[in-house]
Design a binder for these strands. Structure first.
Length: 496
RNA sequence: GCCCCCAUAGACUAGUGGUUAGGUCACAGCCCUUUCAAGGCUGUAGGACGGGUUCGAAUCCCGUUGGGGGCACCA
């Protein structure tokens, strides 16, 4: 791995309480782009302090999704989740408890944090009452000034304690956001928030700061739903006398109804898109455009270009609506840039009912080539190519009725069989010339030849270029298929 | 209730004081064409509203409205 710029260290810090979703992927991408652009380090940290909702499955799911997207990290758990990459590990917060504990002790020692013996119920009541009295629903700080004796008494009663941060009651906290500019928050609006739960596990706003400091994180890029957490975190940095990283709060991604993108908007996890047949490169490109753009509004980027051109300062402030239609278009663009060979390989897992690996590679690739321009999703490949790969396809009723049973079609098909059987070589120019000559001989329009031939060999009215398709099938298969079609026509219109 | 964020067409966006307001998706039409696509061309459609500042405002300031987020021993 190349030498990293030590002054650029960013991280993506998901909590493993579910799969990696689109919003998370976008945050990860922007961090990754920034790190790669500046030759810095991209760190993956798992924030698993929610002991109830965190699961190992989520961890492996997130790692897998990151890997699939190609967002490689320089530090963090190894992709299998078992080892450690980098010098600031472990990268699971539940394995870093001693660090939070000692920082917390230091704050208590400095008089900037204190034990609180209130139960969750008591605090909730406090908030309700405050709200009724039209005051902000805050913890009232009743344990702030407990004497040593008070504390001893509470401990003797066996009361559990959490640790709260002593938020300044006056003054303001200000910072400059790389995207939003100067921001000012009044300290008085903040409550004394819990930094260590009764279980000894840190809360998010505390663990995050401790780790970002310990891991020497230089820039924090996250969703702007965290904007109001930032002053709390800054207060902790200041209390500890630590250098504050630079912040950039990314605008949210919304669903079509304008609400934050969530499960009720349909597919929202990265794996949903993988399974639907999207290419990671296309997803990434689309996500990059959600909240970021170049001066010339460039749409398609190679990964290299994206890294080169990405600038956090060019990120927009306003939330962006996720548009599946544009993603689909973009995926088609990426697929058309993929070679038939690669596309074929990528599409193989999407054949659910047939064993495509039994098809000769060349045949399969040739079939994919014929349909390439129609593929938008990898999952389109099976339905687009199955009638080219296997001969036992169904003739569509509508195609048979409309085209094969049309007036004069039977005679044309019969003549096609005769002439095609004698065609040598059986190639595109030959087939085309043969069909056109036949049209002339019969005194009909080209279409009167082309359409029946198409349906005869494919069972459908739409498909690849006719000549190329027939050439691909070869003489034997073509004739077999036409004979099958003739049986479908039956005697009804023969000779007319 | 309080705090915060945001505001260019249906969607993503460019443009930071003087532009015929540009690009992309979607939509419509035309061309290409045996079909379906792909591609090419053309088109419909846009600075929420109200006040300022200024010779001049999408662009700067204030307000209104609308949308979003937060106010946990969740992250």
């Amino acid at each position: 791995m190349s030498v990293k710029n030590p002054s650029i260290r960013v991280r993506f810090a998901p909590s493993p309480t579910g799969f990696l979703h689109i919003g998370g992927a976008r945050t990860a991408l922007f961090n990754w782009l920034f790190a790669r652009h500046h030759q810095g380090s991209f760190i993956l940290r798992i924030e698993d302090t929610d002991e109830v909702r965190s699961t190992e499955d989520s961890v492996s799911g997130i790692l897998q999704s990151m890997k699939w997207l190609g967002l490689d990290w320089d530090e963090g758990p190894t992709p299998d989740g078992k080892g450690i990459l980098g010098d600031y590990g472990p990268y699971f917060q539940m394995q870093r408890l001693s660090g939070y504990q000692s920082t917390c002790d230091e704050l208590i020692h400095k008089g900037l944090a204190y034990p609180c013996y209130c139960t969750t119920e008591e605090v909730e009541k406090m908030r309700e009452l405050a709200l009724l009295a039209k005051r902000p629903p805050k913890y009232d700080g009743r344990c702030r000034n407990l004497t040593t004796e008070d504390r001893r008494a509470k401990e003797a009663e066996g009361k559990k304690k959490s640790i709260r941060f002593k938020t300044p009651i006056t003054g303001e906290t200000r910072f400059t956001d790389l995207i939003h500019g100067a921001k000012i928050f009044e300290n008085a609006l903040l409550e004394d928030f819990v930094i260590l739960k009764t279980t000894g596990v840190p809360t998010y706003n505390f663990a995050c700061v401790v780790d970002d400091h310990l891991m020497k994180i230089s820039h924090v890029f996250r969703g702007d739903d965290h904007l109001s957490n930032t002053p709390r975190q800054m207060l902790v940095y200041e209390a500890m006398g630590w250098e504050v990283p630079k912040f950039a709060h990314l605008a949210m991604i919304l669903g079509s109804d304008g609400a934050r993108l969530s499960k009720r908007h349909g597919a929202t996890s990265v794996t949903d898109y993988r399974d639907a047949g999207y290419l990671p490169s296309a997803l990434l490109n689309y996500l990059a455009l959600l909240g970021w753009g170049t001066e010339d509004s460039q749409q398609l980027f190679t990964q290299k270009e994206m890294v080169e051109k990405f600038e956090i300062e060019r990120c927009g402030k306003s939330p962006a609506t996720f548009d599946p239609a544009k993603l689909l278009w973009m995926n088609g663009e990426y697929i058309r840039k993929t070679s038939a060979h690669d596309l074929g390989e990528l599409a193989k897992p999407f054949f659910k009912t047939r064993d495509v690996s039994a098809v000769p590679v060349k045949t399969y690739e040739a079939a994919v080539t014929l349909e390439l321009e129609k593929v938008k999703l990898l999952s389109d490949v099976p339905t687009l190519t199955d009638f080219l790969l296997w001969d036992d396809f169904e003739y569509r009723d509508e195609a048979v009725t409309k085209v094969l049973k049309a007036e004069g079609a039977a005679g044309i098909v019969e003549e096609l069989v005769k002439r095609l059987a004698m065609l040598e070589p059986f190639d595109v120019p030959g087939i085309e010339a043969l069909c056109k000559t036949l049209a002339k001989d019969k005194g009909v329009k080209n279409g009167a030849i082309f359409h029946p031939l198409r349906v005869s060999v494919s069972g459908r009215t739409e498909g690849p270029s006719l000549w190329h398709m027939v050439e691909y099938l070869g003489k034997a298969r073509t004739l077999e298929r036409i004979k099958r079609a003739q049986q479908l026509i039956g005697g009804a219109s023969v000779g007319r």
